[in-house]
Write a protein that binds this DNA or RNA. Structure first.
Lengths: 223, 223
DNA sequence: AGTATAGCTGAGTCAGACTCAACTCGAAGA
DNA sequence: TCTTCGAGTTGAGTCTGACTCAGCTATACT
């Protein structure tokens, strides 16, 4: 006798996709990408592997969609959150603090994203890159405004600042994921804001005046 | 008739290990970890898969050894290189510039390391972490000395600075790997040094000198 | 009730990591 | 030179997990 076929309750495309994505996120968070199996994701919502593949063409595109959803969430969060914050320094601080919190509260998923977004095929990687670009664009905006308002040196590289902020926080992530080190989010946010802002803020009058005389001297040397 | 057995020239343990490691590095660089196969590594030195596994218990421990070798190389490089550099700011600049160059000249391998060192089992990950800690410890040293000599604010968090420097450069790595963006290493090194040092310096001589160069740049634009 | 079809199944295929029992090269001793 | 013997190597596997596909069936619509 052939094995009895499974009793199924069919779902609309939309509902299934949502369920798969939810289960996938959980499994990826729990096991990481490599050790997560499509079979386990399927089992979680009581379908067979094949069903998952009828909605997502590969495990990679599945993880990509999970990333996409997450990026949408956090982009919305930061873009609405910053609206109420005034002043270049405060805005910078808000972005840093907010991102640190997101990373701390979603460290497992962030770990997967950081690891796996680099391993995607060019086409898929491009998509993640776009999402990331949109999310991190907020920093570029803050820098641009800061320069406009004279709070930040005009020749500041927004790319450098963006890489510095997200790169630094990314490094803290591995402490968070490892779990060994116990990081004080608020303190790190304050320190990083301080470091970055001091590094790019427009200096005081005194310094400038003194530099001018030095400059003249140097220019003379050059001529 | 059974297939004729392969004609072999046997090698000492030492020689084989070295050859495998070399071949492995090439294949990992070329294909990345996932797409590299142990079979290809074996083929490269004209042995079968099984031989590789008789020296390395798994693909992961193999990649770990490749990483180890690389870390040893660059640690030695930076530790000897910094000896001739005087002054806190210059030492910081040297570390940043040196690391950027290493990353730029070994982007494929660095990509593999950054991606895969996060995916290792706890035990193996710990080993990479140690290597990384030793390599990056140079920054902590520079900061400590800088504080001692009054060049750097006494309450500066060495961890923050370390994460900032290596995190920022790590972010640039993905531009390098992607190949799309054409990064000016020297300029990034100068800007990053500037940003970090301004952010932590006790603010006397060094800062001014840096401001002067900025003014020169600006004047040049005006002329 | 009949029927079209979207949703789902489950039995595969396939690639690639990893195992192992057996083979053989070559150095060391007789 | 002959024999021994153990380390180095082979190649034919096993096993796991991503991915495919032909066909079954629940459900909505007539």
């Amino acid at each position: 006798m052939a094995a009895a076929r499974k009793k199924v309750t069919r779902q609309s495309r939309e509902v299934r996709i949502k369920a798969i994505l939810e289960a996938a996120r959980e499994v990826f968070e729990e096991r990481g990408y490599d050790k997560a199996t499509v079979a386990e994701i399927a089992e979680k919502i009581d379908v067979v592997e094949g069903t998952v593949f009828s909605y997502f063409s590969s495990k990679r595109t599945l993880v990509l969609k999970v990333m996409e959803q997450f990026y949408e969430q956090i982009t919305e969060l930061i873009e609405s959150g910053i609206k109420g914050v005034e002043g270049t320094r405060n805005r910078l601080h808000y972005v840093i603090w907010n991102h640190l919190n997101i990373v701390a509260n979603n460290s497992a998923l962030c770990g997967v994203i950081l690891r796996e977004s680099r391993g995607l095929d060019i086409e898929l990687a491009q998509q993640v890159h776009e999402l990331n670009k949109r999310y991190t664009h907020i920093v570029v905006e803050v820098i641009r405004e800061g320069i406009e308002q004279g709070d930040i040196q005009a020749d500041t590289s927004a790319t450098l600042v963006r890489n510095t902020i997200f790169g630094t926080i990314e490094h803290y992530l591995w402490d968070l994921v490892g779990g060994g080190v116990d990081t004080d989010i608020d303190a790190v946010a304050a320190d990083l804001t301080n470091l970055v802002f001091e590094g790019i803020s427009a200096g005081t009058e005194d310094v400038k005046r003194e530099d001018v005389s030095r400059l003249i001297k140097k220019l003379n040397e050059l001529l």
